[in-house]
Simulated scan of single mutants.
Amino acid sequence: MWQPFMLVHILGAVLMGFYALAPFVAGKLKTVSAAGQEGVLTSMITANRIAQFMLIVNFITGGYLMSQGKYSYVWMGIVTLLFLAIAAFSGIMGKKMKLALQSVKNNQSNKAALDKITTFSTLIFVMFIVTVVLMVYNF
């Protein structure tokens, strides 16, 4: 049963790869036109939703895999906290993306929302990379 769970877990990690690209895409949002921002934000909202779903899948499969392996309690705690932080920040970022999209549709300024999207996507990126490193080098 371990191998199917590991397969789903790895596929989920690949689909969460959006978090590795998000800060670079968000950083360019200020340089495109309003129509471009609308398209990019719509795509980012969809990708964030998929990544959030896969985060839940990985949390469940990771819990099973942790129960089957021999990992330190410190490692399990750190990984769990990182997953919960990514989930929280991605939810906040999703809300900011929806607000920015709404302001683009209403022809309003959205600089503050775009700054927050960039900040949260960068924080998530760092936590995602740390999580991937911890998955490879567990202790």
Rank of each mutant, 00 (worst) to 15 (best):
L11Y: 06
I56H: 00
Q68S: 15
N106K: 09
P4Q: 05
A26K: 03
K96A: 03
F139L: 13
I129V: 15
K111Q: 15
G12T: 06
V79G: 10
V57H: 09
A35M: 01
I60R: 04
Y137R: 02
A34C: 14
T46R: 08
G27W: 06
Y71P: 00
N110F: 08
I124G: 09
F125C: 06
F139P: 12
Y64G: 12
K95R: 05
L84N: 08
M127F: 00
Y73M: 14
Q37I: 10
K30Y: 09
T131E: 09
A88P: 00
T118L: 06
Q3E: 15
S103C: 01
V132N: 14
L7T: 13
Q52P: 01
A13G: 09
K105C: 02
S90T: 10
F53M: 15
G62V: 03
K30G: 14
Q37F: 10
D115R: 02
A26W: 09
D115W: 04
F120A: 08
T131M: 07
A88D: 12
A112E: 02
V132Q: 13
A35P: 01
N58M: 01
Q37D: 04
M54C: 01
F53P: 11
F139N: 04
A113N: 10
M76C: 07
S90R: 07
Y19H: 03
S121R: 02
L11T: 08
T80E: 04
L15R: 00
M1I: 13
I129E: 07
F125A: 14
G77E: 13
L101E: 02
I56M: 07
P4K: 14
M6H: 15
W2M: 15
V126M: 05
V133T: 14
V130E: 10
H9R: 12
A22F: 05
A51R: 01
F5L: 14
F139V: 07
G94N: 12
I124P: 03
A87E: 01
M135Y: 06
L123Y: 00
T122K: 02
K70W: 14
F18Y: 04
G36Y: 05
A13P: 01
N58Q: 10
K70H: 15
S121L: 14
F24W: 06
V40E: 08
M54R: 06
W2D: 13
G69N: 05
A26T: 09
L99K: 13
L82C: 10
A26Q: 04
V133A: 09
M93N: 03
F120H: 07
I78P: 03
Q102W: 12
A13C: 08
L84T: 11
G91P: 11
M6I: 11
I10C: 11
T122S: 13
G36D: 05
R49C: 07
V132F: 15
L81S: 05
V104S: 04
N106D: 07
I50T: 01
K28R: 15
L82N: 09
F125I: 15
V74Y: 12
G39M: 03
A34Q: 14
F24R: 07
G62R: 04
L114R: 02
Y19I: 02
